[in-house]
Simulated assay, not measured.
Amino acid sequence: MADRTALTAAVERLAGRLRSLPQRRLQSGAAVAALELARWLAREAELLEFPGRPPHELPDDGIFVVGDQLAVAGHALVAALETAGAADPERADALLREALRRLAAAAKAIG
C-alpha cells in the first residue's frame, strides 16, 4: 500500500503554498483548482466513511480560505483511509494513489 504519510505531506505542502499566494494568483485560477481538488478529497472521504449516504459538497467560502479547506479535506481523507484500509485495502490503495496523482497535478498547475 502507498504511504498515507506521503498524502499528508503533499496536502500540507500545497495548502501552505495556497496560503502564501498573492490575491491575483488566487483569482487567476489557483483558488478554483484548489477548491475542485478539496471538493474531490472531501467527497471521497465521506464516501469511505458513510457509504450509501450522498456526500455533502464543500462550500466555496472564498479564495482566502481554500488552502485551509484543502488541508481539512486532505486530512479527512487520510483518516478515512486509515479505517477503510483494513476493510478494503485494494480500494484504499487505489484511492490513495489517485489522491496523490491529483495533488501532484494540482501542485504543478498552481506552481
Rank of each mutant, 00 (worst) to 15 (best):
A15V: 09
E36I: 07
G67Q: 02
A76C: 09
P89T: 03
L96K: 03
P59A: 08
A92Y: 03
A38F: 00
E36N: 15
S28F: 07
A31P: 04
L103G: 05
F50H: 12
A99T: 02
R91E: 04
G52E: 11
G29L: 03
D61E: 13
V66E: 01
P22Q: 14
T83H: 12
E90L: 05
L14Y: 06
L48A: 09
D61F: 08
G29Y: 01
R97N: 05
A10T: 04
R25E: 13
L47M: 13
R13H: 11
R43L: 09
L48G: 02
G29H: 08
A71T: 06
R17I: 12
R101S: 10
E44S: 13
A99W: 01
L100W: 04
R97I: 02
R25Q: 14
A106I: 00
V65F: 10
L95Y: 00
L96W: 02
R43G: 10
S28M: 09
R39P: 03
Q23P: 07
A45K: 06
A73D: 06
D60R: 01
D61L: 12
A80D: 04
P22F: 01
R13K: 14
E98V: 01
A30D: 08
L96C: 10
A86S: 14
Q69P: 02
D60P: 06
L81Y: 02
G29D: 10
I110F: 07
Q23K: 15
L48I: 03
R97G: 05
P59C: 00
D60C: 04
V72T: 14
V65S: 12
A92G: 04
I63W: 14
L103K: 05
F50R: 13
L41K: 05
F64P: 00
M1Q: 11
E90K: 07
A33I: 09
R101G: 00
A38D: 03
E57W: 12
G16H: 09
D93V: 02
H75A: 10
L58A: 09
R91K: 11
A73H: 06
A76V: 03
L41M: 13
A31G: 06
P51I: 10
Q27F: 07
R43H: 10
M1L: 11
R13S: 14
L18P: 04
D61N: 15
D60N: 15
A45P: 07
